[in-house]
Each structure stands twice: as structure tokens, then as C-alpha cells.
Design a protein around this nucleic acid. Structure first.
Length: 425
DNA sequence: TCTGGGGTCCTAGGACCC
DNA sequence: TCTGGGGTCCTAGGACCC
């Protein structure tokens, strides 16, 4: 039976709820994901400020008697940043992306743990598989969050006398419960007619929250939010909006569309207007292919292209080898190879070269990356060096046997083999 | 000692072709 | 009296996200 018909049989369609949504989209966000996974391993840290991050952070030391000694933030020296902070640590003013040296000044006694991506990927697969048992239409948005299309999940459109959204609420609660059962971890879910609103409202009740909204809730729940809560309004756009006197989503919604287009260009201006009114027709995309694969590294200390030539050369070759491994493992060859440099003043330069034929082995990548590097200016000290492969082709030998699809593409049923290493922000 | 690593998408100019 | 118009590919940079 069509879902609208189901809603209609409960009397919520035409007379009472003419705005009953055509879709129910959920956004699920794991709570402080990396840190929460660490707490499963080290339960004695529960309730304490803990941060995950750092390039060479020290793993806990096992002491005689079974207890452990943890590194403190104050002991850290280096260029690392925080990947995830527990809510207790956030209360002290530290957050993801903050440099660890700065964080140490704010919360010197917070426990610092190194990131263990294999472990996070494991739990990522677990929670996604648990969701898939109830709702298989899943869009991967990284290691710790997904969109789920609940529109065709059985029972999602059931209503009760007192709650027109009882059905979708029940589905979301079942998902939360299954995720917890599978991982021991909590998540927060937002449910609404589209991805934009669901992403916004999954944050409204964190941690371990559930928020359901419809278009009718936009003025009350969405318009008071700061404009930069919208996915796609970053630091630059929000700075400019602010200078124009626009700070909340509601103020953005009140702005004239043609004026927004004048200020931000036709495309972005029109988009700003749409999202401020909660409009978003994007589908939940359950499958996609990577467009690029890259490796980069920030040095312990800045390196000079001439004085530190040999060390840079070694690092450069190693990045190319890692990239070749990644390509091989995932079953791709690349036609375009590029390099990325970050200078000591944080300026970024990229150079790419496209070959006639696909490139896959480390020596060829090193060759083309070397040619690309020659096009870049090299007078200044470097902070970061990266190598990137683009214009990816599926390797025929793998594609024909289906091996390339076995786990290396962004197929939801393979769950989490492909997500970025990004963490909870 | 401020500021990691892995991605996507958009814009804009020039080359080149018909 | 100079110079069309579309399409695609390549390149560089930048905003943004997890």
C-alpha cells in the first residue's frame, strides 16, 4: 500500500494533516564517536575529560596490578589537533580541530589518547549493519554518520490518536536501540522530510537524542539557529552574512532572494534562499564511486626544498608508495596525478598533470608527481606535502570479475570500508 | 611551538575542436 | 573597421565537510 494511503486511513491526510511529508529522511550521528569507542575499551575514563588526537600521542601504559596510566594533554608536544573530545572535555572549552598545544593550556589534565582508526572502522561497520537490518537505504557520510531513507520502512507512516508521527518515531527508536545493542554506543537521530533539516535537527538533542520535525516546525525550531549550522555555510559565507547583518537562519529566510543572488552569485544565492526555507530535494545516495584518492603528511618541522632535499625526497617517495597501495587495494588506476604543498605560511599550492594512459604503480606515480612538483614554486619552507590521484578508472581485470565491487566502492552493503578518516566534529 | 588527513563540489580561464 | 558559438578537456584555487 502506498504510504500516503496508510496515513490517510488513519485520518491524518487531507483534513487534519494536509502537509504530511512525502518522505521521512533520518540523519544519524554517533555521539563523540572516537572518544566513545575508546571509553568502551577504557571504562575507567568514563566521566572524565578525554580527547583523541595527536600524531604521536602515547598509548596507555599497562601497570602492574592491572591498572593503566594515561597520557595527559599537558605532556603533548607537536603539531597534532584534536579529533574528538568527550562532552566532559568540551565543557572545558576544547573541541575538534583545535591544536593540542592550545587545548593543553585549557585542559592540561584531560586524558589524551591516540587515534585507532581500525577500531573506529570496526564499530562503524557494526552500527551501519545494525541500521541496515531495519532500513537498508543508507547514505554514508563518513565514519560516524549516515542518512537513512525511512519512507518505505514498514510502519513508518502509522499514526495514533495522539501522535501523527508515532510510526516514524518508533522506527527511529528501534534503530537507536539496535545500534546500542550492536555497539554499546549511543547516537542522535534527526528525522524530517529532507536531509538538510534532518542534519540540523539531529544536533538539537545531543547526545542520545531523537528529534522529529516537519515543515511546520521550521519557524519555531530552525529559524532561531545560527546560519552557520546549515551544512554548506562555512566560515567564509557566515562571516559575509554576518557583515550583512544576517546571523540566524530566520534572518536569512527573510532576505530577498534577488539581493542574495547579487551578494553571493546566482547559484549560491539561490541555494541560500532555498535552504533558509527548509527546501531540499536531494535523494539519499546509497552508492558512489571515489573521484580521487590522496595521501599527505605534515612534517614534524618545516622542511626546505633545497636544504632538506633528501629527507623530502624520501617522504615524497613514501607518499607515492602509499598512494599506489591504496589504488591497488581499491582497484583503481589514475590518469591524473597531482601534488599539494603547504608552505610555512600556510599558503597552499597544487599542481596536476594528466597522462594519456592510466597510472597505477608506485614508480609511475613517483615519476608523474615529480613532474608536477617541478611546476611548483620551491623557494619557501614546506609544512606539508601531498600526492593525489584523480580521473580514476576501475581496473578492468578487477571490474570484470566484480572484485572491485567487493568492498572498495561506496556501496552501503559493504558498510564503512570506504569512509574518510574524519571524526566527530 | 596555534592550525591533521582525506575527501567533494564549484568557479573560471585557456586550449582545442567543429 | 576583426574576430560566432558551442562543447569538452585541462588546470588552479578555494570553500566546505567529516
Amino acid at each position: 500500500m502506498c504510504r500516503r494511503a496508510i496515513a490517510y486511513t488513519h485520518g491524518y491526510m487531507s483534513e487534519n494533516y494536509p502537509e504530511y511529508p512525502a518522505r521521512w529522511i533520518a540523519h544519524l550521528d554517533m555521539d563523540a564517536f572516537y572518544a566513545s569507542v575508546e571509553l568502551l575499551r577504557y571504562p575507567e575514563l568514563k566521566g572524565k575529560p578525554v580527547v583523541v588526537g595527536g600524531r604521536r600521542a602515547h598509548a596507555p601504559e599497562q601497570l602492574a596490578g592491572g591498572s593503566r596510566r594515561f597520557a595527559s594533554l599537558r605532556d603533548y608536544a607537536g603539531r597534532g589537533v584534536i579529533t574528538t573530545a568527550t562532552y566532559e572535555a568540551r565543557a572545558l572549552g576544547v573541541h575538534s580541530g583545535m591544536g593540542l598545544m592550545k587545548a593543553a593550556a585549557l585542559a592540561p589534565n584531560a586524558v589524551l589518547l591516540p587515534a585507532d582508526f581500525d577500531q573506529y572502522r570496526h564499530y562503524s561497520r557494526q552500527f551501519k549493519a545494525a541500521v541496515a537490518e531495519i532500513a537498508p537505504l543508507i547514505e554514508d557520510r563518513g565514519i560516524d554518520e549516515i542518512y537513512i531513507d525511512l519512507s518505505d520502512v514498514a510502519g513508518a507512516h502509522d499514526a495514533t490518536e495522539t501522535d501523527p508521527y508515532a510510526g516514524v518515531r518508533d522506527v527511529a527508536l528501534r534503530i537507536k536501540s539496535l545500534v546500542h545493542k550492536a555497539t554499546g554506543l549511543t547516537c542522535s537521530i534527526g528525522v524530517s522530510p529532507n536531509k538538510l533539516l534532518s542534519k540540523l535537527c539531529s544536533e538539537l538533542d545531543k547526545p542520545n537524542g531523537l528529534t522529529i520535525i516537519t515543515m511546520a516546525d521550521i519557524p519555531g525550531r530552525i529559524w532561531p539557529l545560527p546560519a552557520n549550522k546549515i551544512n554548506g555555510i562555512g566560515p567564509k559565507a557566515s562571516e559575509k552574512l554576518s557583515a550583512l547583518g544576517i546571523n540566524t537562519v530566520g534572518e536569512l529566510a527573510a532576505a530577498d532572494e534577488s539581493w542574495l543572488k547579487q551578494q553571493f552569485g546566482p547559484n549560491y544565492g539561490a541555494w541560500l534562499h532555498r535552504v533558509a526555507h527548509g527546501h531540499d530535494e536531494r535523494a539519499v545516495v546509497t552508492f558512489s564511486r571515489p573521484k580521487s584518492i590522496s595521501r599527505e603528511t605534515t612534517f614534524e618541522r618545516d622542511l626546505h626544498p633545497r636544504q632538506d632535499r633528501s629527507e623530502l625526497g624520501r617522504l615524497f617517495t613514501r607518499l607515492c608508495e602509499q598512494l599506489a597501495d591504496d589504488l591497488q587495494r581499491k582497484g583503481y588506476a589514475a590518469r591524473t596525478i597531482g601534488v599539494k604543498l603547504r608552505f610555512d605560511d600556510f599558503r597552499i599550492v597544487t599542481r596536476v598533470l594528466t597522462a594519456d594512459t592510466p597510472i597505477r604503480d608506485a614508480a609511475a606515480i613517483r615519476h608523474w608527481a615529480g613532474l608536477a612538483l617541478k611546476k611548483a614554486p620551491l623557494q619557501q619552507k614546506l609544512r606539508l606535502l601531498g600526492v593525489r590521484a584523480e580521473n580514476l578508472n576501475v581496473l578492468d581485470s578487477l571490474a570484470s570479475t566484480g572484485q572491485a565491487h567487493a568492498g572498495e566502492e561506496r556501496d552501503q552493503l559493504t558498510l564503512g570500508l570506504f569512509e574518510s578518516s574524519a571524526g566527530k566534529r
